[in-house]
Simulated assay, not measured.
Amino acid sequence: MKRFEGKVALVTGGRSGIGRAIAVRLREEGARVFTAQRGADPDFDHVVADFTDPEAPAKVVGEVMSRAQQLDVLVNNAGVMQEASIEAMSLADWQRSLAVNLTAPFLTIKGALPHLRATRGAIVNIGSIEGIGCNPNHAAYSASKAGLHGLTRAVAVDHGPDAIRCNAVAPGWIDTDLNLDFIETMPDPDAFRRGVGAIHPVKRTGKPEEVAALVAFLAAEESGFITGQVYTVDGGRMTRLSLP
């Protein structure tokens, strides 16, 4: 029997990148998967949602329950990244980052909790190594992902007695279409590709499917004694010290 046979999963931001790999992996293992994002998803059951709207998370959860009558796995993956120094960043841009990356997961979890309590379900939040460290000009992104890691621990503590587990995955450089397209904008894409690979002890960047594999494990019953944890998936990048 597949690990998610008879289960229903919701993956926000599941139409592309890491979210798409997660949705595919959960479906391959038997789940009925819903994705939720700004546009339609021709490959999955989906709900169109703008997560800057504070009413969207409850509507998404309500739609999943209306169509599937249960929810077993919630993956909060939708996110945005804006590059600006603190002095250059507007309050509106700051608030947009926090709205999508932190407030939307909070509200989605809040809406999902009664249904996850009924199924003894699992939550996996997609954080970032930038919730642990930070690249230049990523103040809002880093702050929002650090907050998501903290929210992960809080949910695990408060709702462990409900048999609801909550963990987070913190990816590093992953070869999503967005990142691959970014590399192609460099003056020397091959040199940039070699350079970004070299900062990892494993000497390469990661694949979306490698993140999805960990998410599936954390959502499955076999990880039933794991909660409140943040797992880096970064090829050892955060472990390696810079040269003295």
Rank of each mutant, 00 (worst) to 15 (best):
E5D: 13
E5L: 07
K7L: 03
A9D: 04
A9L: 07
V11R: 05
R15P: 00
G19T: 06
R20F: 05
A23T: 07
V24S: 04
R25D: 04
R25E: 10
L26D: 03
L26C: 03
L26A: 01
R27L: 01
G30C: 07
G30P: 12
R32T: 13
F34K: 04
A36W: 07
Q37W: 06
A40D: 14
D41P: 02
D43T: 03
D43Y: 00
V48A: 14
V48H: 02
A49W: 09
T52C: 13
P57D: 06
P57K: 02
A58S: 04
G62S: 09
E63T: 15
V64I: 05
L74G: 02
V75N: 02
V75S: 02
V75L: 01
Q82H: 13
A84F: 01
L91T: 15
D93E: 12
L98C: 00
H115D: 10
R117Y: 12
A118K: 11
V124H: 06
V124E: 08
G127F: 12
G131Y: 13
I132Q: 13
H149A: 14
A156P: 09
A156D: 07
P161A: 11
A163I: 00
I164R: 10
R165S: 11
C166A: 13
C166G: 08
A168K: 08
A168F: 09
G172H: 10
T176H: 08
L178K: 07
L180H: 00
I183N: 01
T185V: 04
P187A: 09
F192R: 00
R194V: 03
V196S: 04
G197D: 11
A198M: 02
P201H: 13
V202I: 15
V202W: 06
R204M: 02
R204F: 00
T205V: 14
G206S: 15
K207I: 01
K207M: 12
A212Q: 04
A212G: 07
A213K: 15
F217Y: 15
A219S: 15
S223R: 14
G224Q: 11
T227I: 11
V230F: 10
D234R: 11
D234V: 12
L241E: 06
